[in-house]
């Protein structure tokens, strides 16, 4: 690990000013990803600003029936919160599908949004990587691509965003609250993460010094009709090859509103609102779900080793929508997929 200075912030504004005024400074909270990256010399901050003593660890009900989750709420506290389990079981399930119990105890809500790709080449400082070192090239293209993108990739980067929580947040249309040197703002989750384009070093739309202070969920609407289906190379404690967050509103026998977000396939959680709209009014059936999956995956392109993910994602979408429509969500400790 490189040498750095340490500041324990006593207010949000102090923390924001300390990071905004120093290009080499980083916020640190749970540290589960940042400390890991520092051990690999991928991240070499000159200064860490510790925000863990700030009062951002509450889950509060909002005036319009939603929840506002403080940025420092640990992933485990969020997943097991009674209101979240009752009203946003999709979010609870997605969080419990990710990482390990130890990591979920330490990792925070804000930090989960900001975790970086697990692309092997991003972590290996001996190889070129445009995300780690802009302009150096992409070693993943033409390399080992099992965990890489099939949607929205570029000639500069084919990395994926690794979060499970964010896939559920995308389906639930969460809003991220941010405080920065220029004041406060809110960012819809769909606009928070970005595609790599020719600047893959930038994972999201935050400016340096802007701090996530909360994540807000709109009022709950999907009841039991949801699922988080995660497919991976071992049965627990592994990143997704493909994951599906699905939520369905039924209008009598037919489908009303649908939300489907994909994880493990792109540089951000992947959604297609037009495809979701086209499902409205259809009877829930495997063929309707398969048509939806074809549409959501239109434009998908494998990188060779991960070509299988296109078909895997389509079939997983059909299963997930079936689970959501039936109100029989995947339970994360049950490894059989029905």
């Amino acid at each position: 690990m490189n040498r750095f200075s340490y500041l324990r912030a006593s207010s949000v504004s102090e923390a924001v000013a300390a990071v905004a005024g120093d290009p080499a400074a980083r916020f640190i909270a749970g540290g589960t990803n940042l400390v890991d990256l520092m051990k690999y010399d991928v991240e070499k901050p000159g200064r860490l600003v510790d925000i863990t003593r700030l009062p951002l660890n509450a889950i509060e009900e909002t005036a319009d029936g939603g929840l506002k989750i403080g940025a420092l709420v640990p992933n485990s506290d969020l997943a097991y919160d009674q209101r979240v389990r009752r009203d946003y079981p999709l979010l609870s399930s997605a969080i419990l599908a990710g990482a390990s119990a130890q990591l979920r105890n330490a990792a925070t809500t804000g930090g989960n949004l900001l975790q970086r790709t697990r692309c092997y080449y991003f972590y290996d400082v001996a190889t070129p990587c445009n995300k780690r070192e802009p302009g150096s090239g992409c070693s993943a293209i033409g390399g080992a691509t099992r965990i890489h993108a099939i949607l929205g990739a570029s000639d500069s980067c084919i990395a994926t965003h690794p979060s499970d929580m964010c896939v559920a947040l995308a389906a639930l249309e969460a809003v991220v609250h941010v405080q920065g040197p220029k004041g406060d703002r809110t960012i819809p989750i769909a606009d928070f993460h970005r595609l790599p384009g020719d600047t893959p070093e930038t994972d999201n739309t935050l400016e340096h010094g802007e701090m996530v202070t909360a994540v807000e969920l709109p009022a709950p609407r999907f009841g039991a009709h949801h699922t988080y289906l995660k497919l991976r190379d071992r049965l627990s404690y592994a990143f997704a090859l493909v994951s599906i967050a699905a939520a369905v509103e039924l209008d009598g026998d037919v489908i009303g509103e649908v939300r489907v977000a994909l994880g493990g396939v792109a540089h951000k959680p992947w959604r297609d609102a037009d495809a979701e709209g086209a499902l409205k009014g259809a009877l829930p059936s495997s063929s309707a779900f398969a048509d939806f999956a074809d549409r959501l995956l239109s434009g998908a392109k494998g990188q060779g080793e991960n070509d299988f993910k296109v078909e895997l994602a389509k079939r997983a979408i059909v299963r997930a929508l079936g689970q959501a429509a039936a109100g029989t969500p995947q339970v994360q400790s049950v490894k059989q997929v029905n």
Partner: peptide
């Protein structure tokens, strides 16, 4: 690197990977 769990300890009663915790924090 937080991948094996052999460093697990309880911090304020909660299990965490001590290899990913900075002592100063």
């Amino acid at each position: 690197q937080g991948q094996c769990g052999a460093c697990t300890v309880l911090v304020d009663g909660r299990r965490v990977n001590s290899c990913l915790q900075l002592a100063v924090m």
